[in-house]
Design a protein around this nucleic acid. Structure first.
Lengths: 137, 137
DNA sequence: TAGTTAAATGAAACAATGTTGCAAAAATTA
DNA sequence: TAATTTTTGCAACATTGTTTCATTTAACTA
């Protein structure tokens, strides 16, 4: 869909900043972090404005968020009783309750091994389930 | 495994700070963020010290990281051609290349619906694959 | 088209998070 | 106990995210 139509459809005003952000995404079929977009925009766009544009786009369904694997993480104890020396988060899922905010390991849920995309080598898998835990129901 | 043994095994010195962190994890079978641990420790432990303890524990396999779903995210364009109004990150996987750092949507890979743990309601699913993409091989 | 209205922006201030370097303190080793 | 190496705390700094408010701009209306 064209950038202008997208904005119109969601009752967002057509501004230079928004069109610039949309054209960045339209030009590459990949995900960008706030700082990556910021860098592409140079000093033309205020940092705060970009936060607001991303929020607005996400709220109305133009963009979606993807959690990153590096920062803002939680830590959980590795399970040393399972006779495995190092257990990474690779091989099991985690569940985060949106009521109490707790995150727990789901030891029993091995992540099904999807066949990887052509030419891609998959080294690790993070599966995070979000919802409401039994305590908070 | 007892805290002291764990430290000894990984050639980490037995200090009050490290024992305190280990006992926190031992007492609850869930994951904690840096700031959560910080709060539990009070002002006894320096912020930087905690960063270093978590790094050390993760490096030697005592703890593992779990990406969180709220902050430090990337944004990707929603796929409006698929006739679905809102496509969230819920229903498909993402792949992050550790060479070039790019993150892409894997539109074709629907996340298999695991049966949720007893009493848990699952509202959303994030599956992030990490590895090396075809370009970087 | 000009004036009005509501949204969007930029700037400043602030809070939270994460990193680095260095000197002091503490834990192991000899 | 003394020597050695690791760990710690502190200061300084960089990055990331939020809030408030005045100004500008886009869309609407007469």
């Amino acid at each position: 869909m064209k950038a202008e139509e997208l904005l119109l459809k969601h009752k967002l005003r057509k501004t230079g900043n928004r069109l610039a952000v949309l054209s960045l995404f339209a030009g590459h079929s990949k995900a960008f972090s706030h700082s990556e977009i910021q860098a592409k925009m140079g000093s033309n766009m205020d940092r705060v404005t970009l936060y607001r544009i991303l929020d607005a786009f996400e709220k109305c369904g133009i963009l979606h968020k993807i959690p990153d694997d590096e920062v803002s993480v939680k830590y959980a104890l590795c399970d040393h009783d399972h006779s495995v020396e190092h257990h990474h988060s690779d091989d099991h899922a985690h569940f985060k309750c949106h009521e109490c905010g707790d995150t727990i390991c789901l030891e029993d849920y091995e992540i099904p091994s999807l066949k990887s995309p052509h030419g891609f080598r998959v080294d690790e898998k993070f599966l995070l389930l979000g919802g409401v835990c039994d305590q908070c129901q």
